[in-house]
Computed example of a mutant assay.
Amino acid sequence: MGPLRTCVGCRATGPRSALLRVVVERGGTGAFEVPELVVDVGRRMPGRGAWLHPEPGCLEKAERKRAFGRALRVAGQPGTSAVHRHLERQQQDVVG
C-alpha cells in the first residue's frame, strides 16, 4: 500500500499516491512576500508539504479551517488559486 498521509481538509488518511502534495512558493521580495500554494505533481519539490485529496470539497474544508498555514508553518493563509486551477483541469480531463 505504501506510506499513508493525512488530508489537511477532511483529516482522513490515505495512500500517498491518492493525495496531492502542495508546497509554498514564495512570491515578491522582502516584506511583501506573498506565499502561494503550488501542486507538487512529482512529489519531489523541496520544503514542507501538505497533503490533500484531489477533491474540491477537501480544498474548501482546508481553506475554511485555515489548515494550510498551520500544516506548512507559514504566517497567514497562503493563496490557493493554483491548486483550484489544478483541480479544475483534473476534473475537465475526467469529464472531457
Results as ranks from 00 to 15, higher is better:
A71S: 14
P54D: 00
R44I: 01
R11I: 03
A18Y: 12
G57S: 15
R85N: 12
C7D: 14
E63G: 09
P78V: 01
S17M: 04
D40L: 11
E25Q: 15
A82W: 00
V23S: 02
V39T: 09
V8Q: 03
E36Y: 03
V83T: 10
V41K: 15
V74G: 03
E36V: 13
H84C: 03
P56N: 01
H84W: 14
G76K: 07
V38P: 05
R44V: 05
V34I: 14
T13Y: 08
G28K: 06
P54F: 06
P35D: 05
A31Y: 07
T80D: 00
Q91G: 12
G49H: 04
R43T: 09
V23H: 04
S81K: 07
G49K: 01
E25M: 09
P78R: 00
P3S: 01
L19T: 05
V22T: 07
F32S: 11
A50P: 12
D93H: 12
K65T: 03
E25K: 15
H86V: 03
G27S: 14
G49V: 01
G2C: 00
G57C: 06
V22A: 02
H53M: 03
A18C: 09
A31N: 09
L20Y: 10
R70S: 12
V39W: 08
L4N: 15
P56F: 02
D93Y: 02
P56T: 01
R64A: 14
V74Q: 06
K65A: 08
K65D: 09
R44L: 00
R26G: 03
L20C: 11
E25A: 13
E33I: 14
G42D: 14
L37I: 05
T80Q: 00
T6D: 06
E60L: 15
F68E: 03
G30I: 02
C10L: 04
E36D: 04
E25N: 10
E33F: 06
V83L: 06
R73P: 10
V23D: 00
V95G: 08
Q92H: 13
L4V: 11
R70V: 10
R43G: 13
G14I: 08
G76E: 10
T80F: 03
G9T: 08
F68S: 02
V94W: 10
A50K: 10
